Each structure stands twice: as C-alpha cells, then as structure tokens.
Amino acid sequence: MRTISELMSLSGRTALITGAAGHIGAAIAEALAEAGATVALADRRLAALEQCAERIHGMRMRDARVAAFEVDLADEASARALPAQVAAQCGGLDVLVNCAAFVGTTELDGWAVRFERQQSAAWRAAFEVNVTAAFELVQEALPYLKRSGKGSVINVSSLYGVVGPDWRLYEGTAMANPAGYAASKGALAQLTTWLATTLAPHVRVNAMSPGGVWRNQPTAFVERYEQRTPLGRMAIEEDFKGTALFLASDMSSYVTGQNIAVDGGWCAW
C-alpha cells in the first residue's frame, strides 16, 4: 500500500494547464509543479506565461520543468495542435486542466453588460473558449492520456454553472455576471460527466467549481458575499491548489465524473 506522499506525487508526469496566465490557472500550475509534474503552461499571453514560469522557479522549485505554449483557444486549429506540441516537447501528456475561460470581467462587446444588452456574438465566443475548446483539447489529448495509464482531465467550471446569481450582491456596483458565462460553465460541468462515462476506464474526468475569488471587488459586494458564504470569506487562489492536486494525482484514482464545489459552502445553503 502506497503512502500519502507517493499517492500525491506527479513525478514523471506532464500536466497541460490552459489559462495558465490567469490567477487560478497559475495557482494550479504551481501546485502540480510542486508535486513533481512537468507543467505545460498555455495561454494567449506568452509574456504572462513566462512570468508564471519564473514564479514557479522562484518558489524553491529551481529544478521544476516548465514549458510555455502560446495558443488561441478560439481558433480550432490552434487548440487542436496544442496536445501534440506539448507531448512532443515534454515527452507525453498525463493531465489536462481546462482552465481558460471568458469571465465576468472579460472585455468583449455585448458581454459584461445588462442582460438586455448582451449579444449573441459574445455568447458564442464564450462557448468557443469555455466549452468547445475543452471538447477539442480532450479529443486531441486522448491518445496520450490513454497511453499514460494515469490520464486525468480536470475541467474548471464555476459555482455559477450550478446555481443562479444572487443579484442582491451586485446592487450599486458595476460588476457583471453574463448569461453566457453561467450557461457555458454549466455545459462544461455536463460535458465532464459525459466524458467521464465515455472515456472510462482509461481516463478519469472531473470538474472543480470555484466560488467567488477576492480580487479587490467593491467593499459592498465583498461584505455581502462574505455574509452569504458559510465560511465567511471569499476564496483566494491558494484555495484551489489542493483540489487540483487531488484530482490530478492518484489520491483520486477511484474518482471520476465528479464536480467538486470549492466555494466556501455557497452551494450548500
């Protein structure tokens, strides 16, 4: 029987994290690198990826194996080419983390505005990145994930893929919660369960659904959010590291088709 440290180890494995230039994606990359994985960081902003790689190396992980890949997940050819590029450069692909997404603060015409002004073009763009790209990446990564024998897919959904927004939190602020964000994140959660039963027993597929993350939002919003949350605070990026490592590693070798809400108990009310 293996020890906990052995079950947690990702030594010898390669993990591809999309959206790695973002807050949550970067935190996940740090966690998997610390567990011994070679991490392939993917995003549209190469300079931001290089900064993420520098942070990983600066976290007492000078020997961490990190590679950066510039990709436009809204472009099918770019998305589909990514897994093969990672496998060729890193020697394989064992873990795929679909973290890239259009979020509430994304600057896109007809997106972060009142429902009456939201546009179909923005809705479709969100689905391309939040759902379709994940579908394409899993398809292209599948041969490598099967070959691994330890293949794991982690889709980063959202609590708003599970429940509707409480609009009282937003009163008096300029913050937005686009319909396309919630719908696409809900679709990603359902895609997770579909893939889990379809790709079993060769590849495990799970999701994690973050709650609200503190990023200097208006004080009124933060206070309302904290009152609405059983654990009494908003999340920080570090809160997602443990769940990501659990789902990527053999700690969860008998877990598939699950959506773990990392939301401070928000969905438990």
Rank of each mutant, 00 (worst) to 15 (best):
A77T: 14
S78W: 06
S78R: 03
A79K: 06
A81V: 01
L82K: 04
P83C: 06
A84E: 13
A84V: 08
Q85C: 11
Q85N: 10
A87P: 05
A88Q: 15
C90I: 13
C90S: 11
C90Y: 04
G91A: 09
G92S: 11
G92N: 06
D94S: 08
V95K: 06
V95W: 09
N98T: 11
C99Q: 09
C99M: 09
A101Q: 05
A101W: 05
F102G: 01
F102V: 12
F102K: 13
V103M: 14
T106K: 08
T106N: 11
T106R: 03
E107L: 13
L108I: 08
D109T: 13
W111Y: 11
A112P: 10
V113F: 10
E116R: 15
E116M: 14
E116C: 12
R117P: 02
R117W: 08
Q118C: 03
Q118V: 02
A122T: 11
W123A: 01
R124L: 14
A125R: 15
A125F: 07
A125S: 13
A126F: 09
A126G: 12
A126E: 04
F127V: 00
E128K: 14
V129W: 12
V129K: 12
N130I: 10
N130Y: 09
V131K: 02
T132W: 12
A133F: 07
A134E: 05
F135L: 14
F135P: 00
E136N: 15
E136Q: 15
L137K: 05
V138Y: 02
V138L: 01
Q139I: 00
A141T: 02
L142K: 12
Y144V: 07
L145F: 05
K146T: 07
R147M: 13
R147S: 14
S148M: 04
G149V: 06
G149W: 10
G149R: 09
G149N: 08
K150I: 03
V153N: 01
N155D: 05
V156A: 03
V156W: 05
S157R: 00
L159H: 00
G161Y: 00
G161W: 00
V162C: 06
V162K: 12
V163C: 01
Y170W: 15
G172V: 07
T173S: 12
T173D: 04
T173G: 03
N177E: 12
A179I: 14
A179S: 11
A179Q: 14
G180E: 10
Y181N: 11
A182T: 01
S184W: 06
K185N: 10
K185G: 01
A187P: 04
L188K: 02
L188Y: 02
T192H: 12
L195P: 02
L195S: 06
L199A: 07
A200T: 04
P201H: 01
P201C: 02
V205N: 13
V205I: 04
A207P: 04
